[in-house]
């Protein structure tokens, strides 16, 4: 009698566990994609300057709804050809060889850690919760802040990050890049999470 009840309990537990396993938001394991990567050209691309790398230096980025708030430092390229990411995981890096946020053309790229060596989460970990329409604000040196609205998010293999992410001409876009699972203890994260935001109207 007792053992039968225990068996039932274990069976119920197993079912519940399975249920929780399936229902637990899988978005945290690999964030979902939405929207379409803003194309360089298009009907609305007419009138954008051919290329643009000059402009006010960005100082900080905020996405209030998801409590993303990070200071920005200018970053370049590592010896291995990848983008430098700030050593302080709480900071975001602006790819200084491309256009700055607020530039009239091209993709302004901000990179940020998803976590650091000590196991703490990084400045861009909250991008896993970003939604279409979220407002992104970038504070700039000696210039008014610029506002963007999130329009798309995609997950790409880390070695297949589209070159377009770093384009210096065409329609203006703010591109936020961090890492995404799966995680390999040897080689690290295998994917990039890429969030696109376009200039907010008005």
């Amino acid at each position: 009698m007792a053992s039968a009840a225990a068996c039932v309990a274990v069976a119920v537990a197993a079912v519940l566990a399975a249920l929780v396993w399936t229902l637990w938001p899988s978005g945290t394991a690999e964030p979902s994609e939405f929207g379409v990567r803003p194309p360089a050209a298009g009907p609305s691309a007419a009138g954008f300057p051919a290329r643009s790398t000059a402009g006010a230096e960005p100082l900080g980025v905020r996405v209030p709804r998801i409590s993303l708030d990070a200071r920005i430092e200018a970053v370049g390229v590592e010896d291995d050809g990848t983008v430098e990411v700030p050593a302080d995981a709480g900071r975001a890096g602006w790819y200084r060889h491309g256009p700055p946020p607020g530039a009239p053309a091209g993709s302004a790229v901000l990179v940020g850690h998803v976590d650091d060596r000590t196991g703490d989460l990084g400045a861009f970990a909250t991008l896993y919760r970003v939604r279409e329409g979220d407002v992104v604000t970038v504070a700039r040196r000696d210039a008014p802040p610029v506002r963007y609205e999130v329009t798309a998010r995609e997950v790409v293999d880390k070695d297949r990050l589209p070159a377009e992410v770093f384009r210096r001409d065409g329609r203006p876009v703010l591109t936020l890049v961090t890492c995404a699972p799966p995680y390999d203890p040897e080689s690290g994260y295998e994917k990039n999470l890429v969030v696109y935001a376009e200039p907010a109207r008005g």
């Binding site: 537990a13 990179v111 998803v114 990050l161 890049v177 994260y189």
Partner: peptide
């Protein structure tokens, strides 16, 4: 040229965090 990529994670905490949270919840419930 475009740079070779973006390595923006270190410890796997973001991946591990979620996995271990899930595991705790599952075993805890069970």
């Amino acid at each position: 040229s475009a740079p070779g990529g973006v390595d923006a994670g270190e410890s796997g905490a973001m991946a591990a965090d979620n996995e271990s949270a899930t595991a705790w919840l599952v075993w805890g419930t069970a």
